[in-house]
């Protein structure tokens, strides 16, 4: 479904690439999380797959078709929701369909279906400034799903929400993932979130951004029905990823310390 082959990305003349030879495939209906410290290129990768950013080299294929720019089979849920403040909930959710020139009545019906599913029908005619952060991100999710994409790209979608709201939305996302055949690429910095949601977790490191290891998460689904955190597999995966990220951070610090040593010290006059 999603096939990322040898993607690298460098910005300007900086010698070290942000992303170095990144390859990943995801099957239809698979939920894959990218996790890693800031600066590991996970958001950059997501933007390349979304078609918002060109890769310096490498190929991305979605459903067998080379993906070089934005396309209608991909949708993005953004970290900061990115709702249009001048559009109501319904008009925001129907935005993608409006761009595809779907007639007004049909697009509002289709958007409304998702709003209802996400418990937002009462707020259909509210502006984003009038609803809570959690509701705004639900609108963001409804907007992405309304175009019925094959691939859903989520860039730390719950990072800006409080813990309780986050957990609630994670549950809702899981239900949506179950009911559809959506392939989801999910960027996060929360190990807990990654384990909760994913079929597979890709741990990334920095300088350059690359894959360190992949984990399959075999915890029984649906995971919102039981205390998955009490399972031994949860503790094991969590511990392994945590250790890996900690080592990565320590190494990265050493690397930057070493880099500092080579630069001349500034001496006070």
């Amino acid at each position: 479904m999603l096939d990322i082959q040898h993607v690298s990305k460098s910005f300007g003349r900086v010698a070290q690439p942000v992303l170095d030879d990144f390859s990943l495939t995801a099957a239809e209906g698979e939920f894959v999380s990218l996790i890693g410290p800031s600066g590991c290129g996970k958001t950059t990768l997501l933007r390349i797959v979304a078609g918002l950013l060109p890769a310096t080299s490498g190929d991305v294929t979605v459903a067998g078709v080379p993906s070089v720019g934005p396309s209608r089979d991909k949708a993005v849920v953004f970290q900061h929701f990115n709702l249009f403040p001048w559009r109501t909930t319904l008009a925001n959710a129907a935005y993608g369909l409006e761009i595809q020139n779907v007639p007004k009545q049909e697009r509002e019906e289709r958007a409304m279906r998702w709003l209802r599913m996400l418990g937002l029908e009462k707020y259909a005619h509210h502006y984003p400034g009038e609803i809570s952060g959690g509701m705004r991100q639900r609108v963001g999710i409804a907007r992405a799903l309304a175009i019925e994409p094959k691939l859903l790209l989520m860039d730390e979608p719950f990072g800006a929400l409080d813990a309780l709201t986050r957990e609630h939305l994670q549950g809702e996302l899981q239900k949506i993932a179950e009911q559809t055949s959506l392939t989801i690429l999910f960027v996060t910095h929360s190990i807990d979130e990654a384990v909760y949601l994913s079929d597979r977790i890709v741990v990334m490191g920095t300088h350059p951004g690359r894959i360190i290891r992949e984990f399959a998460v075999d915890l029984r689904r649906p995971r919102y029905d039981y205390n998955f955190r009490a399972e031994p597999e949860y503790a094991q995966i969590r511990g392994e990823i945590w250790g890996m990220l900690e080592r990565e951070l320590a190494e990265d610090e050493e690397r930057s310390d070493a880099a500092e040593d080579t630069t001349p010290m500034e001496t006070p006059a």
Binding site: A50, G51, L52, P70, S71, R72, K74, A75, V76, F78, H80, N82, F84, Y95, G96, I99, Q100, R143, I147
Partner: peptide, 13 residues
Amino acid sequence: DVELLDVARVACA
């Protein structure tokens, strides 16, 4: 807001 422009670009506007 460039982030809002991203929304339009992703939607193939």
